[in-house]
Design a protein around this nucleic acid. Sequence first.
RNA 1: CGGGGCGUGGCGCAGUCCGGUAGCGCACCUGCUUUGGGAGCAGGGGGUCGCCGGUUCGAAUCCGGCCGCCCCGACCA
Length: 486
Amino acid sequence: MGNEKGLTPQAEDFSAWYNEIVQQAELASHSAVRGCMVIRPYGYRIWELIQAGLDGMFKATGHQNAYFPLFLPKSALDREAEHVEGFAPETAIVTHAGNSELEEPLVVRPTSEAIIWPIVRDWIDSYRDLPLLLNQWANVVRWELRTRPFLRTTEFLWQEGHTAHATESEAEEETRRMLGVYRTFMEDWMALPVITGLKTESEKFAGAVRTYATEGLMRDNRALQAGTSHNLGQNFARAFDVRFQTEEGEHDFVWSTSWGVSTRLIGGLIMAHGDDTGLVLPPRLAPYQAVIVPIWRNEDQKGQVLESAARLAEALVGGGIRTHLDGREGMNPGAKYYDWERRGVPVRLEIGPRDLEAGQAMVVRRFTPDGEDRKRPLSLGGITEELETLLVRMQGELLAEATERRGANTTRNVESMDTFRDVVESVGGFVFTGWCGDEGCEARVKEETKATIRVIPDEEFRSSDPPTRCLCGEASVAEVVRAKAY
RNA sequence: CGGGGCGUGGCGCAGUCCGGUAGCGCACCUGCUUUGGGAGCAGGGGGUCGCCGGUUCGAAUCCGGCCGCCCCGACCA
């Protein structure tokens, strides 16, 4: 703890800052079981808003929600060789029901490919049944050795899309489409700019042909893989015998994809925007977009102020602004200011006797672009519209700020190992380098610097004049983004 | 899973070395006075000291085992 009332500054100890903010903003707490966390109401509300935003986008792209079971027979997981190998070390296995041993152990899903495909194969007969576009909101369990709230927990909540297509190109198109959906969500809702691109073989999903990811930059200049989208080719279709009859009457295995984002996004939100005062939430994902703090000096004023504040709250809620009236007694306004700032509420409305007389409320923003006033009065007439505009603007400003920070912490055209090491150890951030394409080289650089290849970036992120050499001195076959990551 | 640190009211900690009725700050409850950037005074409530076992007349304190958390490494969304 930095001091009695504040947080440990980020610059002093980012991990400590993160843990304190999770606790003090009442996002989550630990449970009795190692690596598991309780998502508290304020944190869960953020997840609900994330869900609502993404779910709308999934539906708009033709996907339907379903729910598949938590357990799968161990034999099912074992059917796709790479998949088993990837997940075996981190699966939780149920062997008993009460006192009797089960005939076949059950695996608690670490992901649902091996549950879904044996079932869905019966839903698919012909090309007319394709594409099959499914999504499920679920919990999964991965027995991680090292856990952190939201970023990596033993059990976590996520969304997993699973689709089947008639052709390879359709599957690839779907994989890319959903990567784009994630990117849009991250930028427009989370105000988190991300680099999209392809994972290297060693970093891809176990069982995938290709894995794409979105990578965001946190305020400690480490990267966070925020979402992944996999082109599974026909790997799972072969493993689970999912065939369909083509237009020409032939039989073929379906081409499938899967894609997911998890409660890790909340960790990303915290680390992308939070400051030494506390959480900073983008308006679109803030449980409360505006909090009203009433101020009074005597009983008479208290009645009037509270009444006006309640009317104001009602008007704002009616206008679609998530609003909370903080009527707690025995707490000074100042204490409330700190409280809501720590929780990242975008806008605070102060309303007191002086404001009532002037027919206004003081509007105080959680963050502003440099040099702009945080605080100004707004007339109560038309305040809903003003706030709507303000929240939209703040959403944009937060993204702009994060994008600028990413730019300032991105280094391009690094060609030598010495320079690379220097950059990683001093600035950190995203480092664009060449890559020879060799996995051994990738592993050695990781070993030496702890920085990994995050993605082979999509075209729009590539340098206009990319490096011609890998860090090892060999000719580069692809420009890559490297960073220390969570 | 290896190395290090730590578990004492909701949170942060002292007490543990040297065994003897469990304490402090914040938070909480009641009352009064306050309230435009973390209020004051008075009174009050709450902890089988992570868990299990052992030693002892007596254990937060000593011994053994286990569990959890944090940091650093090997694996991962």
